Amino acid sequence: MLEHIALGQYLPGSSVLHRLDPRSKLVGLLIFMLFLFISRHPLFLVVAIGIFIWTFSVSKVPLIYFFKSMRLIGIIIFITLLLQLFMNNDGEVLFQFFSVTVYSGGLTEGLLIGGRLFILVGMASLLTLTTTPVDLTDGLETLFSPLKKWRFPVHEMAFMISIALRFFPTLIEETARITKAQMARGASFSHGSPWKRVKTIIPIFVPLIVQSLKRAEELAVAMEARGYVGGEGRTKYRQLYWKGLDTLVISIITAYAVLGVLTRLL
């Protein structure tokens, strides 16, 4: 299941979403994330779903691949829904089974939170699926460039985030490989008491941490061997160009944010 996580992976393509400036995608996603949970109005949620469907349709990401990548968040959403069903006592009683009572407020709240989580993770996954790590780095560095006046290490921060996203799929593959190796040696991750299951996870995390430190050291040595000294005095081979389509995307997201504020006040 872990190998299907889309966050941090990139799918080459020539769709509209691939061609957008990374700055517009980053700013649009940030605004979308900030205002996604601001209103409970049905119209606002319908607009959020519409934006997500439109974004997914223009991204040209395979439907099967996307839903496979969302299986893990689907489990989290299901657990969230169950917690709301059994712990939220608002609204009318839908049904009662022995000592368990399900209320309409719990069902509504669970669906709202689950839907928002799905949209949020889906949009973040689409960002990395349609944007190369290099473009993400350039976009972040450009957006945070005003902080250079206060001697903030903008290039280093953007580069660090890009490296983290780049190695996220690698760590997932490494975790899957170590898990299979432990299972081949007789380890069981689905049987026994909860404490025993926790103990079986330790043989996974220890070699994973060792491998992560080893990769980090190899990357540092490679960067030093190539004369990397940070962002000072560096030039860019690829330049970012803001197009009319980027302005249109930001305008749509801004209108979405304004709608969220208005529905919150009504």
Rank of each mutant, 00 (worst) to 15 (best):
I209R: 01
S69G: 15
R234N: 06
V210N: 02
A184G: 13
Y237D: 14
L259T: 02
G105V: 11
L213W: 09
R215D: 00
V58R: 06
P169R: 03
A184I: 10
R226W: 11
L26T: 03
V210C: 02
H18T: 06
R215M: 00
V46I: 15
G28W: 00
M70K: 05
H41I: 07
F98T: 12
G115E: 05
F144Q: 07
Q182R: 14
Q96K: 14
F144Y: 14
P194C: 03
S39K: 05
L126R: 01
F118D: 04
G106I: 04
I77S: 01
A48F: 13
A225P: 04
V206A: 12
M223V: 02
S188D: 14
R40S: 15
V121L: 09
V102R: 04
I119T: 08
T263D: 04
A255D: 02
A176E: 10
T170N: 02
I250G: 06
S57W: 12
S162A: 13
G260T: 06
A216M: 02
F167I: 00
T132C: 09
I64L: 14
S15F: 06
P169K: 00
I119A: 07
L45R: 13
W242E: 08
R71Y: 08
I53N: 12
V154Y: 06
A220F: 08
F98H: 15
E92S: 08
L107W: 05
K180Y: 11
T170F: 09
I51T: 07
V100S: 15
L30D: 03
V261E: 13
G91D: 04
Q84M: 07
I163Y: 02
I38D: 03
D246M: 08
I31C: 09
V47S: 07
H191E: 15
V102W: 03
K236Q: 10
L147F: 14
I178F: 03
M87Q: 10
I53S: 11
L136R: 09
L82H: 01
F35M: 00
H4W: 09
T132N: 05
F37N: 13
F52Y: 11
L165V: 00
R71F: 13
M70V: 07
I51F: 14
